[in-house]
Nucleic acid binder design. Structure first.
Length: 592
RNA sequence: GGGGCCGUAGCUCAAUUGGUUAGAGUACUGGACUGUCGAUCCAGUGGUUGCGGGUUCGAGCCCCGUCGGCCUCGCCA
């Protein structure tokens, strides 16, 4: 046995015991005839002392120690001298007086230290991930991830779910995200696709009668990365039979309550609040609004239609809308220059044509370069509509509805962060429900499924499939935490007639549908129960529970924005022999 | 594919905005010191300013290209 305790175990009550600890040398403090060594492992730090009572050999070993050396120290637990306890260490009441010290493995001088104050550049952290993962913050995050996944598994087992693994090598289905492909050696020219999600398999498990299915499933999507998106990520995948939306949401409500209670010490009330998609877009301009703060969007299209300002009235006349938000007390903070930056932000990042603004003066009047285009009464009505008070800043976008949504959502998030409108440690969970079934793809001139083609319409919207696809709402629900989509799911169509109708709207004729999803359509013919489910993005849930701002810090070995693993240098080129076996020729060699 | 920020010692950053020999903290090396815990003190090593061009009497700084990291729009059923 290498050790008797970890570096986080020992307390004053252990005084007098002879113990052996192993770990990494965090720091050493050399006092000549004696030394202090902070010995670190995942469980904590313990101060190990080489005293004048220690042997000359041990002192000599201690003098050899460098940062991140792996050592084993045997000694006696002593209470620290009065006044020398370290309240910042869990083991700070004691220290271990060495009677035997051994270097298990020295360390090359590390490019950075787990304990250093300033975080090194992320490329360096990723290249030497084994050092980065030694940082206590990373260790706490991966422990949190483990704790979350354990509780998820416990919860679903208690509710009689069955954990089923589904294939990683699957079939490419061209809808949706770009697939990662795996060539088949046995079938030259044919490819497997890595799963974007186990969607179709879990539905088939329902047809097979397994009723409650759960899986912690790795998913792959070959799309561009973001702070909250990795090419491979982990979903908590859930599917249930004989359920409607409320049953699935209720199940997840219970899970979130458990996670919040056990990991955050917070009791949340369930059912979680629900808001329709339409309301979310109207009040916040986004289907995953951050509800930790207000600053809701306000529509003044009716006023714009009646005003003299050509930009506003013209937009209203053309069927667009004029909407805005009111940043309380922000007039002084946002100088002309900063407002110019906001204008560039909505133009470049969100496609708006511009940004109109008013500052509310001390006497309640609105000041702005464009104020002269409005009569006083109109300005008063605008201020009233926003409930604007002196010192407030009103920002307005005049454009198509979709553009105002995007631009104002972007503004709202940016301003809230800059104005610190929320407690970054707080969490707000809610459901967004009743998503549209279809989106109109203007480029391709056809309807596309907003979620996926097996999403069931609401019962009361069935008739709209025929005459009002745009107004047709789905049995779909997204779990939103702090402005992030933490998960989403739907009730699936189990009626083949409705499925045919939806395929028809999506421009999939029967032949095409069979070609793509034939195995699922086949399965649905043999007694498919009503079913539905959800998938939660585990990486995002960990990020949110951990109060982190990117998903890479929740993943042991993440990829860079260009989808590289800097530690292993994947992806890499392969031997021509490997390619030949797979009957693959590379058209263009990447320059390297 | 588009927009933006960044790249200077092992690491984190600075360099009076184009001007002498590119600095600091930390790490590292050597030395001193038993009561430190960001130990302290003394001394020292350490630079292709990411890379390649260009402008200039002169470039870390300006221009073009390129590589890499991050943020973001598109994209992500």
């Amino acid at each position: 046995m290498y050790r008797t305790h970890t570096c986080g175990d020992l307390r004053a009550t252990d005084s007098g015991k002879t113990v052996t600890l192993c770990g990494w040398v965090d720091t050493t403090r050399d006092h000549g005839k004696g030394m202090f060594i902070d010995l670190r492992d995942r469980f904590g730090v313990t101060q190990v002392c080489v005293t004048p009572d220690s042997s000359a050999a041990d002192l000599a070993v201690a003098k050899e120690l460098g940062r991140e050396f792996v050592i084993r120290a045997t000694g006696t637990v002593h209470p620290r001298p009065a006044g020398q306890e370290n309240p910042r260490l869990a083991t700070g009441e004691i220290e271990v007086h060495v009677t035997s010290l051994a270097i298990l493995n020295p360390s090359a001088t590390p490019p950075f230290l787990p304990g250093q104050k300033e975080l090194p550049g992320e490329d360096l952290r990723l290249k030497h991930r084994y050092l980065d993962l030694r940082r206590p913050k990373m260790q706490r995050t991966l422990e949190l991830r483990s704790a979350i996944i354990k509780r998820m598994r416990d919860y679903f087992e208690q509710h009689r779910f069955i954990d089923v693994e589904t294939p990683i090598l699957g079939r490419s289905t061209p809808e949706g995200a770009r697939d990662y492909l795996v060539p088949s050696r046995v079938h030259p020219g044919s490819f497997y696709a890595l799963p974007q999600s186990p969607q179709l398999y879990k539905q088939i498990m329902m047809v097979a009668g397994y009723d409650r299915y759960v899986q912690v499933a790795r998913c792959f999507r070959d799309e561009d990365l973001r702070a909250d998106r990795q090419p491979e990520f982990t979903q908590l995948d859930v599917e249930m039979s004989f359920v409607d939306s409320d049953d699935v949401m209720g199940m997840i409500d219970g899970l979130m309550a458990k996670l919040m209670r056990e990991l955050k010490g917070v009791e949340i009330t369930t059912p979680l609040p629900r808001m329709t998609y339409d309301e979310a877009m109207r009040r916040f301009g986004h289907d995953a609004p951050d509800l930790r703060y207000g600053m809701e969007l306000v529509d003044i299209t009716d006023l714009a239609a009646a005003c003299d300002f050509r930009v506003f009235r013209g937009t209203a006349d053309e069927g667009g809308c004029v909407r805005g938000l009111c940043a309380i007390g922000a007039a002084e903070r946002y100088s002309r220059k900063l407002i110019d930056e906001l204008t560039e932000f909505v133009r470049n990042d969100h496609g708006a044509k511009g940004l109109a603004w008013f500052k509310v003066e001390a006497d309640g009047t609105l000041a702005s370069p464009i104020a002269k285009n409005f009569d006083g009464a109109m300005l008063t009505r605008i201020a009233e509509r926003f409930s604007a008070k002196p010192g407030d800043l009103i920002l307005l976008v005049a454009d198509a509805w979709e553009v105002t949504c995007r631009a104002l959502n972007g503004l709202r998030r940016r301003l809230a962060a800059e104005l610190k409108l929320y407690d970054p440690d707080s969490m707000h969970l809610s459901w967004i429900v009743e998503f549209p079934m279809f989106d109109w793809d203007a480029e391709e001139g056809r309807w596309v499924a907003m979620h996926h083609p097996f999403t069931a319409p609401r019962d009361q919207d069935l008739a709209k499939l025929a005459d009002d696809p745009k107004g047709c709402r789905a049995k779909a629900y997204d779990l939103v935490i702090n402005g992030y989509e933490a998960g989403g799911g739907t009730i699936r169509i189990h009626d083949s007639k409705i499925q045919q109708q939806v395929f028809g709207l999506l421009g999939l004729d029967e032949e095409e549908a069979v070609r793509r999803f034939g195995f699922l359509l086949d399965a649905l013919r043999y007694g498919a129960p009503p079913h539905g489910g959800i998938a939660l993005g585990i990486d995002r849930v960990v990020m949110l529970f951990g109060g982190l701002d990117n998903i890479r810090d929740c993943i042991a070995f993440p990829k860079t924005q260009r989808a590289m693993d800097l530690m292993t240098e994947a992806p890499n080129t392969v031997d021509p022999k490997q390619l030949a076996e797979l009957a693959i020729a590379v058209l263009r060699q990447s320059k390297s």
